[in-house]
């Protein structure tokens, strides 16, 4: 499955995205490190039309000094999706992008069929700090077993320097009272995933989404760190696909246990 690089205009930004696959659109909003395609994107593209955005100010895009807030970024991404001719879609957000995804779902609940939040950074523990330091130190915070990953896509210092002001401006407080108040009315079926070894956002934050949101499901992915989709792509994709295909009914097992007919 090869991803095609394309661009779309929205709110005066030229936004890059990677696309592959057929069927129901699944939009992905990346974490603070920017868009990095990983094996889970490939696996998801076997089931869905995957549209993975590079949000304005991240990666190869010019510095974004214009977007003032997370709801504003979410609104821009909503326009970008509309400009692709996509009205209704499934929405997946990773870490920082999880918060963007939640705001987009709050702004356009009729457009977002279901939400997948990978280690979302919308609700953070006291004292939570973004990974920082050398690329190796950052990798050790992001991944439970960086040694198993081979060539880790380490964040490029120049790109980080460009995006950090934007991330700091938009990430908001660890507990965002306005967002949390509004989440209590967000009925969108939502799957929240945390790696059991997440060293960036405490996995215990997962339960807060369940406390607040009327239709949230929490899944722990064993032995994964913050970037679950990179460390355990098969486990991540299996539950995400199942949830997006069956929503709440994904809790009913379809696993086969017959050994010999």
């Amino acid at each position: 499955m090869s991803f095609a690089e394309r661009f779309v205009e929205a709110d005066g930004f030229r936004i890059r995205y990677m696309e592959a696959g057929q069927g129901t659109p699944l939009v992905h909003l990346h974490g603070a490190g920017g868009l990095r395609l990983n094996p889970a994107h490939e696996l998801l593209a076997r089931h869905f039309r995957v549209i993975a955005f590079e949000m304005p100010g991240f990666g190869t895009s010019p510095e974004n000094a214009r977007t003032r807030s997370m709801p504003e970024l979410a609104s821009t991404m909503g326009v970008a999706i509309k400009n692709l001719g996509v009205d209704v879609f499934d929405l997946m957000g990773t870490s920082f992008g999880g918060k963007t995804a939640l705001w987009l779902a709050l702004q356009a609940p009729e457009r977002v069929r279901a939400l997948v939040l990978e280690a979302p950074a919308a609700i953070r523990q006291d004292g939570a700090e973004s990974p920082s330091g050398t690329p190796e130190e950052i990798a050790r915070r992001l991944y439970a077993h960086p040694e198993k990953l081979g060539a880790i896509p380490l964040p490029d210092p120049a790109t980080r320097a460009k995006t950090q002001p934007l991330v700091q401006r938009l990430r908001g407080p660890n507990r965002d009272a306005e967002l949390e108040r509004r989440l209590t009315d967000l009925a969108t079926p939502t799957l929240v995933l945390f790696g059991t070894l997440d060293a960036v956002i405490a996995p215990a934050m997962g339960r807060v989404y369940k406390d607040l949101m009327p239709n949230a499901h929490l899944v722990f992915v064993y032995d994964a760190g913050h970037v679950i989709s990179t460390e355990r792509p098969e486990a991540f994709t299996e539950v995400v696909v199942d949830f997006l295909e069956r929503r709440e009914a994904f809790v009913i097992s379809r696993a086969h246990t017959v050994i010999h007919p």
């Binding site: 995933l193 339960r207 369940k210 929490l218 899944v219 064993y222 991540f236 097992s253």
Partner: peptide
């Protein structure tokens, strides 16, 4: 690890393991 999580996690959860899976 799953036993400890089952004892301590106050909200219903799913477990996407290598050898064990529960929704």
């Amino acid at each position: 690890e799953l036993i400890l999580k089952a004892w301590t996690e106050p909200q219903p959860f799913g477990w996407q393991g290598r050898h064990f899976q529960y929704r």
